[in-house]
Design a protein around this nucleic acid. Structure first.
Lengths: 223, 223
DNA sequence: CTTGACACAGAACAGGCGTTCGATTATCAT
DNA sequence: ATGATAATCGAACGCCTGTTCTGTGTCAAG
């Protein structure tokens, strides 16, 4: 039959890889060695095992020996991965205080799923929450109507972090870069076309959380 | 011992649920019935099975009977999910043509993972690609320096869709809402503070793709 | 031609693992 | 108290599944 001379991956290998991926997508768990054999025209379990070993050596597969269906695709092939489910607690808009987890009486109607690998640094905590932006009031933060902002509860922030604040005096919710200055705080819009807001120490500054991510889905069309 | 009167979930159930989640996170595959028993102080496999059945009835778990470790958590508990790995092909900036998959000679140095559930409609194709925005040239599209835009290759677009275009005459790459008009095309910035660009039919309009998502990670601090 | 690496088949083995069933104890309404 | 229901246990059963070993045919190098 065909020979491979021990270099690289052959057609058979690709077929197996593809089968594992599609099987896993359909059944939510990996196939057994025998199932792989049936669908890839391999009549012996030992041959499947043989190929699996090669795929593992190539770094395309990982195996938990002795464990049933204990294999998983590595890298680009793997359709499954760790993700974080972040509850969407409500909307954020100017003129209304935002709801942080402890204040919100609502059950998250919806949630968004974020890949762990996308999470900045060590914000991988379980206490993140999300809000959907309503209206154009956040355009100075470069955030559109409909965007989803993911927040981490916080009462204070370091310079340069984007925070969600409730400005009592102005009766306004806003997202700004936070800077502490000698006579108070400076809230810097992300959009350079807008001017910073200066907050005196006397005014109340109510930080609700830090913005860790912004997601904009383009499914809907522009007005 | 304690009794549950067949309503709701008890402490034991939560412990099992938690163990499955943590086990799966560590081993990349679900535990066996016996492993659950060992770590939850249940000495009989039948009791574990007993609880698993209840969890399934509650809709918190799904089971593939007869299949080894054939269980998976449902909903918020499930740390694993279908995700799309989108290759980051390079950067997008004004003054340089963008690279679409077929043109790019580079192997994606990096990739971003997006939950399937986050993908708009049926853009769940395998041909998506991502670009990292460099510079502030996309501020009129409400997109910041460092943002990641996810694109779907396309040569044309419908009105209202945001597209990535290469304007040959202006030697410029840009992201705009696309509108076809009687005498040509109108490229509308997402930011209402900016004016639309009118393109005559005589000018060449090179649509490279549709923007399906924008992601902004806030890990880095503002300048 | 011989040799040896390689691809593959098939069968047997053994342990993993879900299932099932009989028996026992605990809790509660009656 | 008492019977019904829930919770548990322990062991046996048997399929599922990965592992291993022997054997065969092919092809290229010596």
């Amino acid at each position: 039959m065909m020979v491979r001379k021990s270099k690289g991956i052959g057609e058979r290998h690709k077929k197996i890889l593809g089968f594992i991926a599609s099987y896993q997508r359909e059944h939510k768990h990996p196939p057994s060695i025998r199932e792989i054999g049936e669908h890839c025209e391999i009549s012996s379990t030992s041959v499947v095992n043989y190929y699996l070993d090669q795929l593992e050596k190539e770094g395309l597969l990982e195996r938990d020996r002795k464990i049933s269906r204990g294999m998983r695709l590595i890298g680009d092939n793997n359709p499954l991965g760790d993700m974080l489910r972040v509850p969407v607690l409500g909307v954020i808009q100017a003129g209304e205080p935002i709801l942080v987890p402890s204040e919100s009486p609502f059950t998250p109607e919806d949630s968004v799923e974020i890949a762990m690998s996308m999470m900045p640094s060590k914000e991988k905590g379980r206490d993140l929450f999300a809000l959907q932006v309503q209206g154009d009031s956040m355009i100075d933060a470069m955030i559109n109507d409909g965007d989803i902002v993911i927040l981490k509860p916080a009462q204070d922030a370091r310079n340069g972090e984007m925070v969600a604040v409730w400005l009592n005096e102005r009766n306004e919710t806003t997202l700004k870069y936070f800077y502490k200055e000698k006579d108070g705080y400076r809230l810097q819009p992300a959009n350079p076309a807008f001017k910073p807001i200066m907050i005196k120490k006397s005014e109340s500054l109510d930080i609700k959380g830090k913005v860790v991510m912004v997601i904009r889905k383009m499914e809907r069309l522009a007005a």
